[in-house]
Design a protein around this nucleic acid. Structure first.
Lengths: 217, 217
DNA sequence: CCTTTGTGATCTACGTTGTAGAGATCTACA
DNA sequence: TGTAGATCTCTACAACGTAGATCACAAAGG
């Protein structure tokens, strides 16, 4: 039974490696060298490469956990986690996308989800909808930072010019807006605000204000 | 200058391979064997492995493009694209996550984004906010299917039991709900509905109804 | 007819990856 | 001193992406 402290050392080094040189640079050999051992020395601690990546997910979630607060309004608590998630993504842009692609079932992960459930319940979201809304919010949060990290966003302006403009009328109409480089921090904050508005509008503080209309077929 | 038909043949085979045996099974050698040639024969057509994956992104976006409609209300048009995106993810669960991790700058990609821009403009979203809202919606759509494909969602019930229940009070409160296996189709539809509600609430059909409050610090 | 040209595919080979398997080294307690 | 258990090392292998050189063959020009 390997030492758990050693495992954390390994995961810390792996995360550092990912931060410095990208996820692709996290190879068994490179990681081992950083720790002054052989690649094979890692296996008893982390299982295999997949186990290492799962460990990174845990490691990051643990880093996110302090953002869970018990004081404040439920909305404040949701926002705190949302903001902490983005801060985490900023610190570990290469590793963060792993959160989207690997299920997290560690105690820390469950605790985090529990905090989100609790906040949503406090906000007035009916129990039957809470897990769904949690998935909606966490999916957005993880997807957004993943998109940022992988450059999905920042590649629009390049080849817009090479288009016959009448094929992309909306782009033309928005050309002035599209010139400006977005402020991603402000954008994320605005997104959070909209999502909070959505939750509030839908369920709390306004019973009967709006009824969800049936969606058009 | 290699033949473009050949390139599409290769991409079709690669997508099929990914659908059948997962993205990890899409190796140069395996793909070449499926086509009855050598691995090196692929290079003139697709560049390199990265080019192949970019090609898969294009291939999938092309498959999504027919969902772009010019008739119907803007809301109907947004929903049509959202639903088509999920159908695409169902058809190509292994390859779909690539859409989140690779910028798409092909003509097809721009055309798709243009359709989303146009619908949002028609819905009354102010020009300055349209790109942001497009990113919000597409991020959710891509992230959701990616989460589904990678099993991020369907792993909660397993180890909830092994917890000291007082550490996860919200889970306990929701235990009945969490027992039920979610209907993912219905959930996605409900998410789309909520996001549509968000857009409508925020900008259209209700000027002055709701003012976005400043977010708590 | 032969030759040239060019486009694909092939063959071989290299460095890197994850990891299996066997052995070495060290610690601690009898 | 000897033995047990844990930790690391050494060696080796199959599979990966791909560089470089070669080859097959169809179309075009004389």
């Amino acid at each position: 039974m390997p030492d758990d402290d050693r495992k954390r050392q390994i995961l810390d080094a792996a995360l550092e490696l990912a931060d410095e040189r990208g996820l692709a640079a996290v190879t068994m050999r490179a990681l081992a060298q950083k720790l002054g051992v052989t690649a094979m020395a890692l296996y008893p601690h982390i299982g295999d490469k997949d186990g290492l990546l799962d460990g990174l997910v845990d490691r990051m979630l643990a880093e996110l956990l302090p953002a869970v607060a018990t004081h404040g309004t439920p909305e404040q608590r949701l926002l705190a986690i949302g903001r902490a998630a983005r801060a985490l993504a900023r610190r570990h842009p290469s590793a963060y996308p792993l959160l989207l692609s690997r299920p997290a079932v560690t105690p820390d992960a469950v605790r985090l989800v529990d905090a989100l459930y609790a906040a949503l319940l406090d906000l007035g979201v009916p129990a039957g909808e809470v897990p769904r809304v949690e998935r909606l919010l966490s999916t957005f949060t993880l997807g957004y930072a993943t998109s940022e990290a992988n450059g999905r966003f920042s590649a629009g302006a390049i080849n817009r010019a090479q288009f016959p403009e009448d094929q992309v009328p909306a782009h033309r109409e928005l050309s002035e807006v599209l010139e400006r480089a977005p402020d991603w921090d402000a954008e994320y904050e605005a997104d959070l605000a909209d999502l909070m508005l959505m939750v509030r509008t839908r369920w709390s503080e306004n019973d009967g204000w709006l009824k969800l209309q049936a969606l058009p077929e």
